[in-house]
Design a protein around this nucleic acid. Structure first.
Lengths: 217, 217
DNA sequence: CTGGTATAGACAGTAAAGCTATCCGATAGC
DNA sequence: GCTATCGGATAGCTTTACTGTCTATACCAG
C-alpha cells in the first residue's frame, strides 16, 4: 500500500499521516527506495488507534504517544496500567490537594487497597475539593454510589484483560479500555440519566422516547 | 470587595477575571462610580464554579458559558440536563454513526427508555465503533457491566437532585454533577483498578499499598 | 523515453483556544 | 497633591494540532 492509499482507506489527510510519523505515533513505512515506502495493515490499524485515542478518548498527541510507547514496550502490565492512567489525567501535585478532600475520598473507597499516589485517588480528591468550594456537600451517600459503580467497572475491566492470551493483546486492551472506557461510561451514564428521569417523571416526557428492546429471556 | 481582593481570594489573576467577564462567564461588579465596581461572594462563588468546570471538568470556555447560562435561565430542569449533557460531549452527527454500533449500544441499554438523539447514546455508539475498528470485540459482557454501573450512578444523580429544595439548587447540581461526576467516576475507576488488581495479583504489589480504613459497622 | 503525478523529508505557516500584558483616563484614599 | 488602583479596550503571547510548500527524486502511462 502506498501513501495515497493509506490516506484514502484511513480517511486521514496525507499531511496528518506525515505529522503522526514525525511525532512517533506511527512507524514510517518499509522503505523500497530513496523516496518510496510501503505501508500495510499494521499502519492502518495504528492510525485508527491513534485517532481513537485522540478524537474519541480526548487524549493530546503527547499522551497518545506515551500510551502507544507503553503498548509497544516490554514493560510489565502493571506499568502499562500506570501509563494509561496518567495519560487520561493531567498530573496533579499531591502536595496541592486538600487533606480533607483526600480523607473523604479514602472514606468513600473504604477497604480498598490503593497506593497513596494513585492518580485516580488524587483526581477524585480534587473533584471533591471542587464540589466543596462550590458548596455542594454529599449528604446522602451520592459519591458512595460512584465508588460501587467504579468497582463494578474495574472488575469487568480486569476480567476482560485476564481473558486475553498474550501480553501484547493485554497491554493494548489496558490502554484502550482505560482511555475509551471513560468515554463509554460517560455516554452510557448520560443515556441512563434520561432513562431514570423518564421513569420517574413520565409527565415531562410526553412524547414516548425510544425504548430499546428488553432482553428476551 | 474590590478587584484586587477578589483576585487574591479566588487565587485568579486580575487579567483572567476580566477575561471571564468579557466572555460572560462572570457578571461585572456592582458599579459604584464611572470606573469603580464592587464584588461580593456571589462573584467569588461563580469564579470557583467556572474554574471547576474548566480545570477539573475539562470544559471549554464556550461550553462553560453554555451551562452557566442554563443555570441562570428559567428553563425547565430537563432542558438544563440537556445543556449539561451536550456540554460534556462534542456534538456528533447522528448520520455519521455506524448503524451497527448504534444497535449494539441499544442492546447494551436493553429496556432503557432513551430518545434516539440522546447525546450519550450517540457518544457511546461512536466509542463502540472505535473499539470495533481497532479490533476489540466484547465477548464476555464487558460493556454490559458499564451499563449496569451507569444505571447505578444515574439513580444516585437523580436521588441527589430530587432531594434539593428549589430549581436554582437543582439546576446547579445537575450541571455540576454532570460535569464533575464524569471526572469523579473516572478517578474512582482508576483507583478501583489498582485495588482489584492488587487483590488478584498480590505478587506484583510487593510493597503493601495503602489500605483505606474499612467501614467499622 | 518522456512528462505528469506521486513520494519522502524538511520546514514554515496557520487557526483556534485561553489567557496575559499594555495602555488610557479617572478616581480613591492618604 | 500624589500614588496606587480601577474599569475598559485592545493587542499580544503560547500552546496545540495540524496544514501547506518546497525540493529532489521515482514511478508509470503513453
Amino acid at each position: 500500500m502506498k501513501m495515497a492509499q493509506l490516506s484514502a482507506v484511513s480517511d486521514t489527510p496525507i499531511a496528518t499521516i506525515k505529522f503522526y510519523q514525525r511525532e512517533n505515533l506511527l512507524p514510517v513505512g518499509e522503505r523500497t527506495g530513496p523516496n518510496q515506502a510501503r505501508y500495510d495493515s499494521t499502519h492502518l490499524r495504528r492510525i485508527r488507534l491513534v485517532r481513537g485515542l485522540i478524537d474519541v478518548g480526548g487524549l493530546s498527541v503527547a499522551a497518545a504517544r506515551a500510551v502507544i510507547e507503553a503498548i509497544d514496550s516490554e514493560l510489565p502490565l502493571s506499568e502499562t496500567f500506570g501509563v494509561a492512567q496518567r495519560s487520561v489525567s493531567d498530573l496533579l501535585d499531591p502536595a496541592g490537594i486538600d487533606a480533607g478532600a483526600l480523607a473523604r475520598v479514602d472514606a468513600i473507597m473504604a477497604g480498598w487497597c490503593v497506593s497513596a499516589d494513585n492518580p485516580g485517588r488524587l483526581a477524585a480528591a480534587s473533584v471533591l475539593e471542587t464540589f466543596d468550594e462550590i458548596g455542594h456537600v454529599d449528604h446522602r451517600g451520592w459519591f458512595a454510589a460512584y465508588a460501587s459503580a467504579a468497582l463494578l467497572v474495574a472488575e469487568a475491566d480486569l476480567d476482560e484483560v485476564d481473558a486475553l492470551p498474550d501480553r501484547e493483546a493485554k497491554a493494548e486492551t489496558v490502554v484502550v479500555g482505560t482511555v475509551l472506557g471513560d468515554a463509554l461510561f460517560s455516554g452510557l451514564r448520560r443515556a441512563a440519566q434520561e432513562h431514570v428521569s423518564a421513569l420517574r417523571y413520565p409527565a415531562t416526557h410526553p412524547n414516548p422516547a425510544r425504548v430499546t428492546e428488553p432482553p428476551e429471556e
